[in-house]
C-alpha cells in the first residue's frame, strides 16, 4: 500500500470485537484522518473493521446505534468506504450489512446494522485460507455450511438465495470432509465460495435456530461462534424436522438430509440419520461438545429464553419454544 502512496495506520483485533475495542478503533481512525477502512482477517476482524468504518463519521456514540442494548438508531452519516478481505472461510461477513459486537456488561452480542454498511469491495482470495489450522478450518467451515443450510430451509428463502444454497450445501460438505483428511487447494477454493454464498444468503433471506442460539450463547460464555454453530446444527435439523408443518419446508429439510447423507456415503439418509452422521463426523474431527465449549446448563437456559425471541428465530422453519431449544442443547452435550 505504501508503494501506492498510501498512509497506513494499523489496528489489531486480537479477540471478537467488543464495544470498547470498536470505540478505540474509531478514535485511532479519527486521529489519523483515515479515508478508507480495510479489514484483513477472520469474521471478528471484518466485523470490527465494518463497525469502525460505520462509526467514524457518526456524531453519536456507538451504543446509540446498537440493537437490543442500545437505541438501534440509523447512522446519521454514511460510513467510510470499507474493504473486506477474509482470511478464513466461515462468516461471509464480507457481504453482509451488520457487524456483531460484544457488550460485556450486558453479556450479549448484538448487531450494528445499516444498509450502507455493505462493503464497497469484498476480496475473497482462497489462497489466504491455505494452511489454516485444522480447528479453525473445522469450526469456520461448519459455520459456513450452517449459513447455507439455514437460509435454504428458512421461511424467507428466495430464488436467488436458493440458487446459491443448492450449489453450496453439497459442495461445502464435500470440501470440508476433504480438508479434514488433508490440505487441498481445490477444497479451500470451494469453502471460500461456500462462505461467500452463506453471507449472500443470510443477508438476503434469513437464518434460524442455530444462529438464534449462537448469538446469546456466545455473548454469555465467549465460546467460539463457529464451534457453537457446528455443534448445534445436527440437533436443530432434527428438532425442525420433528416440528415443521409446512410441507415445502419439510421437503427442503429432507433434501438437506440427503445432501448430508451423500457426503457420508448414505444418499437416502433421513434427516435424523443424516444429523447423526454429521454429529459423529464432527466429533471425530475434533469438535467439542457444547458443555466442553464452556456452555453449562445455566447458560443454556438463559440462551433458550433469549433465542426464542431473537430475529434469527423468526425465519426458522418450525416454531421452537424455549423448552424445545433446551432439549436440543441437552442433546448437543
Amino acid at each position: 500500500m505504501a508503494d501506492q502512496g498510501c498512509a497506513v495506520t494499523s489496528f489489531s483485533v486480537p479477540i471478537e470485537p467488543d464495544l470498547a475495542l470498536v470505540e478505540q478503533g474509531v478514535a485511532i481512525a479519527r486521529a489519523a484522518g483515515v479515508q478508507v477502512v480495510v479489514a484483513l482477517g477472520g469474521g471478528a476482524v471484518i466485523d470490527a473493521g465494518k463497525a469502525i468504518a460505520a462509526l467514524v463519521p457518526a456524531t453519536q456514540g456507538a451504543i446509540a446505534h446498537l440493537e437490543v442494548v442500545g437505541q438501534g438508531l440509523p447512522l446519521d452519516h454514511p460510513p467510510l468506504p470499507f474493504v473486506a478481505i477474509p482470511t478464513t472461510a466461515g462468516t461471509g461477513a464480507e457481504v453482509t450489512r451488520n457487524a456483531v459486537i460484544a457488550v460485556p456488561e450486558h453479556r450479549r452480542k448484538v448487531s450494528l446494522r445499516d444498509a450502507r454498511m455493505l462493503p464497497v469491495l469484498a476480496i475473497v482470495d482462497p489462497a489466504l485460507t491455505d494452511g489454516a489450522p485444522r480447528d479453525v478450518t473445522l469450526a469456520s467451515g461448519l459455520d459456513a455450511i450452517t449459513q447455507v443450510i439455514e437460509p435454504y430451509v428458512c421461511t424467507r428463502a428466495n430464488p436467488l438465495t436458493d440458487t446459491l444454497c443448492r450449489d453450496a450445501i453439497p459442495r461445502g460438505l464435500a470440501a470440508l470432509t476433504r480438508l479434514m483428511q488433508a490440505e487441498d487447494t481445490d477444497a479451500r477454493d470451494d469453502m471460500a465460495w461456500v462462505s461467500l454464498c452463506g453471507g449472500l444468503a443470510l443477508a438476503n433471506s434469513g437464518l434460524g435456530a442455530v444462529h438464534g442460539l449462537a448469538g446469546p450463547l456466545g455473548g454469555l460464555t465467549g465460546a467460539a461462534h463457529g464451534a457453537i454453530c457446528g455443534v448445534l446444527l445436527p440437533h436443530v435439523l432434527v428438532a425442525n424436522r420433528d416440528k415443521v408443518s409446512d410441507p415445502v419446508l419439510a421437503e427442503r429439510l429432507d433434501q438437506v438430509g440427503r445432501w448430508i447423507g451423500t457426503a457420508f456415503g448414505q444418499s437416502e439418509a433421513s434427516v435424523v440419520q443424516a444429523a447423526g452422521l454429521l454429529a459423529d463426523w464432527s466429533q471425530a474431527a475434533g469438535l467439542p461438545a457444547l458443555t466442553a465449549l464452556g456452555i453449562d446448563r445455566a447458560a443454556q437456559r438463559v440462551a433458550a429464553q433469549a433465542a426464542a425471541s431473537s430475529s434469527s428465530m423468526k425465519a426458522n422453519p418450525a416454531s421452537l419454544d424455549a423448552n424445545d431449544l433446551m432439549k436440543l442443547m441437552e442433546a448437543a452435550g
Partner: peptide, 9 residues
C-alpha cells in the same frame, strides 16, 4: 478508494 487507510487485522 483513499490514500489514508486504517488497516484492521
Amino acid at each position: 478508494l483513499g490514500r489514508r487507510i486504517l488497516l484492521v487485522m
